[in-house]
Design a protein around this nucleic acid. Structure first.
Length: 268
DNA sequence: CATCAGGTGAAGT
DNA sequence: ACTTCACCTGAT
């Protein structure tokens, strides 16, 4: 009983496929291997509002509750959706159990820099290679070794070569060097207002509005930031040709974006 | 084997 | 300000 986390609601498989994280590994039987910061865990889905920690490399349930964003009331947002907006109502229904994880900001930044012009399998493969090249070994599970996401100072040319980053390699190196030089940078960024944070992130070489937005939403948990990629562009054009009203769901536009994004992908 | 993928910065209008 | 283009590599 001690290892059960109740959240209303949570769906591991939807989170795994949501494109906010690239290192969750399905193990079958509804189980997922989940690395986060300096540790990893194996979770399984028990019910629509219950997950079970089957294994945790560090015994710390509170850490995982925080990581899974325990304190945010997702039902409240879903219930506030305009009933006359059939598309969004359907999208939010389909997205039941989706949660915005509390991931490490640096990992999010580097991962989304890598993501540009890549599909999800390619992104996962690059990130995994980077972790193996420069991360710390955290342990093993069912024969597979698990590594942490590298600290900024561990990312150098040597580590990056061989990760298949292509033209993104200098972007990753430069961001890592900036973080390595200034250990308080994440904390400083986390204190900025949304717009300032987006500008600060875009000042990194190779980071434009899309990568900055994803980093703000998924790395800094800025629930009002609304990333627009090619998929979202298509979804908005198709379903909101007159424009999407960002005022209606502020300050939770980012979550609304996730519902639309996920749902639209399943339709195509 | 060819095409394309969850973008960006630089160069061109 | 807006449009076009090259960019590296792996997946399909």
């Amino acid at each position: 009983m001690n290892n059960i986390i109740k959240l209303d609601p949570i769906d591991l498989s939807k989170i795994a496929n949501s494109g906010q994280c690239f290192r969750w590994k399905p193990l079958g039987d509804g189980r997922f291997l989940i690395p986060a910061r300096d540790r990893f865990a194996v979770f399984s889905q028990r019910a629509e509002n219950e997950v079970d920690i089957l294994y945790s490399s560090i015994d710390d349930k509170a850490f995982w509750e925080d990581y899974l964003d325990r304190d945010f009331d997702y039902e409240k947002i879903r219930k506030s959706i305009d009933e006359n907006d059939g598309f969004l109502t359907a999208a939010a229904h389909a997205g039941k159990g989706l949660r915005i994880l509390r991931q490490d900001p640096f990992e999010a930044l580097i991962s989304f820099i890598i993501s540009q012009r890549k599909n999800i399998p390619a992104i996962s493969s690059c990130v995994e290679k980077l972790c193996r090249a420069a991360g710390e070994r955290l342990g093993e599970y069912e024969g597979g070794e698990i590594y942490s996401f590298p600290k900024p100072e561990a990312i150098n040319e040597d580590a990056v070569s061989g990760c298949g980053l292509g033209y993104r390699a200098p972007y990753v190196l430069q961001a890592a060097q900036t973080f390595a030089k200034d250990p308080g940078l994440s904390e400083m960024l986390s204190k900025l207002e949304d717009e300032e944070l987006l500008s600060a992130l875009q000042s990194f070489y190779g980071v434009g509005i899309k990568v900055a937005s994803c980093t703000a939403l998924f790395g800094f948990h800025r629930m009002n930031v609304f990333p627009i990629d090619v998929w979202m562009k298509r979804a908005l054009q198709e379903h909101y040709p007159k424009g999407f009203d960002m005022g209606r769901y502020s300050p939770f536009n980012g979550l609304i974006q996730q519902y639309i994004f996920e749902y639209y992908k399943t339709l195509t």
